[in-house]
């Protein structure tokens, strides 16, 4: 059987919030080591990959690999019933389960709610993501990245990201004119979560649809920092760490500059 007990249900709520607007139905693959999820948006421009290792759970048991086809809207309805400090237990049968049980327990043990979510059949392409050497890594505050994506959305549909030696520049343009926001590599680091790190091998200049980046920033509550990995001719990677026990990575295909 598959059984996973998460002490802080709030984490599962945050994970679901960060994937559900991008991927409606997702395959949650469970094995002895971790739960993984990979899904693409309907236009096959963006992909989300989530990894949550067994050590994130207070109790984790997976006798046989099992794949749960989750409708994220249905799962979200259940998790809306959970408080952040509720314990969440996921349970499913071993072989081709057609449903998954979720049990919510209040911290003081005085309230238990249980739900059964019907699993859905999902025929979706799973993509193999090659190991890539990126030309630039930018680590910054996740809140700042969210702010930049939101602010630039007022000016255009796309953002041009340019990395040079010490700087990363986010630019957008449209009918109102042009907006540029430049972040400079932090000279001193007082608080790691507020600093900017630009690690550059080669300069990059790429353009991406802001609509998707704004969806990616739904993961902001998961981590104080975000890492952008960029290479010319490769999808952008936007990574949020889930503590020491996993990550959410978003991949976004670039726009071809005119």
């Amino acid at each position: 059987m598959f059984e996973a007990k998460l002490q802080q249900g709030g984490l599962l709520k945050k994970i679901l919030e960060s994937v559900k607007d991008l991927v409606v139905d997702g395959l949650w693959d469970c094995d002895g080591a971790a739960i993984t999820l990979q899904g693409m948006d309907s236009s096959h421009v963006a992909l989300v990959e989530m990894l949550l290792r067994a050590e994130a759970f207070e109790h984790y048991r997976c006798d046989r690999n099992v794949t749960l086809g989750m409708n994220h809207n249905h799962l979200s309805k259940i998790l809306k019933c959970a408080n952040n400090d509720d314990i969440v237990i996921l349970k499913a049968a071993d072989q081709n389960p057609d449903s998954c049980s979720l049990i919510l327990e209040s911290k003081n043990g005085e309230k238990t709610s249980d739900f059964v979510v019907s699993l859905v059949r999902i025929d979706t392409d799973q993509l193999g993501i090659p190991e890539t050497e990126y030309s630039a890594h930018v680590k910054m505050s996740s809140g700042e990245f969210q702010r930049i994506c939101r602010d630039l959305s007022q000016f255009g549909d796309a953002v041009q990201i340019t990395c040079s030696k010490q700087d990363v520049k986010f630019s957008s343009s449209g009918e109102t004119g042009k907006a540029n926001i430049t972040l400079t590599h932090s000279a001193t680091v007082d608080k790691e979560e507020e600093s900017v790190t630009v690690d550059l091998k080669e300069p990059v200049d790429l353009t991406f649809a802001l609509r998707f980046l704004n969806l990616f920033t739904k993961a902001t509550p998961i981590s104080d920092t975000v890492t952008l990995s960029l290479s010319q001719e490769a999808p952008l990677v936007v990574e949020y760490k889930i503590g020491d026990s996993g990550h959410i990575r978003y991949f976004l295909a670039p726009k071809i500059q005119e």
Binding site: M40, S43, H44, V45, A46, L47, D125, Q126, L127, G128, I129, P130, D157, A209, E233, A234, P235, F251, A253, P254, K255, I256, Q257, E258
Partner: peptide, 14 residues
């Protein structure tokens, strides 16, 4: 928009 690339141009199907 037509200038948007797709992920399949970069990643192969598993």
């Amino acid at each position: 928009p037509s200038n948007q690339t797709k992920l399949h141009s970069f990643f192969s199907q598993k």
